[in-house]
Amino acid sequence: MSTPYRAEPEPRVPAATIGKSVAVSGHVSSREDLFVDGEVEGTVELPDNRITIGVNGKVKATIHAKEVIILGSVQGNVEAVEKVEIRKDARLMGDIRTARIVIEDGAVFKGNIDIVRPEVKTPPKVQAAAASASAPAAVPVTPMPQPQLAPAIAPAQQTLSPEIKR
């Protein structure tokens, strides 16, 4: 009989771990993924990485990370650039600000959820064109070479071009 697929809560192999018997107080910042199974109090900063709070983890902190996965308990505001996941039996008391959120049935959450639209990154050349278009330049502007734009932002380029010519 085949075993039904179930997404396991375990993170990809974390590079840094705060173990079950470890308690940290203060500011924690990391440039690699972090797995917290102990206690953390203060602030946690991983703007480019994922933090996973394990089933034994107790975090009383403001968390700012790329991705936050909660299996244990968190008290504090959570801000994630990409995603917040609150797994079954996890507890979060605090406000969430993120682009995407997953709440499993059985999770306990008390707080505000603010979904923020992910920022559309504009290629640097278009930004430069926008800057020159908005500047009160009397100097004739050479048309910019056509940047390699993703289809989603192509209309922005079209509206910029006539202004450059003027």
């Binding site: 609150i86 997953v102 505000n112």
Partner: peptide, 17 residues
């Protein structure tokens, strides 16, 4: 908290507490 209520209310751009 539930994903269903969150998804339903978010589709209208509302903020949920």
């Amino acid at each position: 908290a539930s994903q269903a209520n969150l998804n339903f209310l978010m589709q209208y751009g509302h903020q949920l507490y």
